[in-house]
C-alpha cells in the first residue's frame, strides 16, 4: 500500500512537471522559433502548436484560398495594426496552414468580434492538421 502511494505521488509529480514544461514561445520575440521548429508540428493537430504559444493572440483570421487554407495569428490589436503601432517584434504574423478546408466564415462571426480567437475557436479548430508554417514581419527599417 505504501509503495502504491509512493508510485502515485511520483507519477503525479512527473505529470505536473510535464504540464508546466516551458512553452516554446514565451514572448513575441520567440515566434520565429515556430518556423525553425516547423517539422515538430507538421502533420500534427493545430492544438499542439497553439499550446506552445504563451503571448496572447490578439487577432486571428482564417482564409480558404485556391489550394491553401491557413490561419493568420497576430499579436497586435486591430487598432495597433491600423496605426502600425507596436514594437518591431509585436508586428510579427504567424500563418499556420492546415490540410482541411477551414469552416470559418467572416460573415458568420460575431459582429465586432470577428477576429477574436476564443477558447471555442481553439476547441473547434484544434484538431485540424498543420501542413506548413510561415512567420513574416515587416522589413526592419
Amino acid at each position: 500500500m505504501k509503495n502504491t502511494l509512493k508510485f502515485y505521488a511520483i507519477l503525479f509529480l512527473l505529470i505536473n512537471t510535464g504540464c508546466k514544461a516551458q512553452q516554446v514561445i514565451q514572448t513575441v520575440k520567440d515566434v520565429p522559433l515556430l518556423k525553425t521548429n516547423e517539422q515538430q508540428f507538421i502533420n500534427k493537430p493545430l492544438k499542439n502548436l497553439l499550446k506552445e504559444i504563451k503571448p496572447a493572440i490578439k487577432n486571428a483570421g482564417a482564409s480558404n484560398e485556391v489550394g491553401h487554407q491557413y490561419f493568420s495569428f497576430k499579436f497586435r490589436t486591430l487598432e495597433q495594426i491600423n496605426k502600425n503601432e507596436g514594437s518591431y517584434e509585436d508586428k510579427v504574423s504567424l500563418y499556420v496552414y492546415v490540410k482541411e478546408i477551414i469552416d470559418w466564415k467572416w460573415e458568420e462571426r460575431t459582429k465586432g468580434k470577428e477576429l477574436e480567437w476564443s477558447k471555442e475557436d481553439a476547441e473547434k479548430y484544434g484538431n485540424l492538421t498543420v501542413v506548413r508554417i510561415k512567420v513574416i514581419n515587416q522589413p526592419q527599417k
Binding site: 491553401h68 493568420s72 466564415k105
Partner: peptide
C-alpha cells in the same frame, strides 16, 4: 502565393477590410 512582403501587407488589410 504572393511573396512574403506582399502577402503580409494584404493579410494586414484583410483584418481591416474583412476576410469575406
Amino acid at each position: 502565393e504572393f511573396p512574403n512582403n506582399i502577402f503580409y501587407e494584404i493579410d494586414g488589410l484583410k483584418s481591416i477590410m474583412g476576410y469575406g
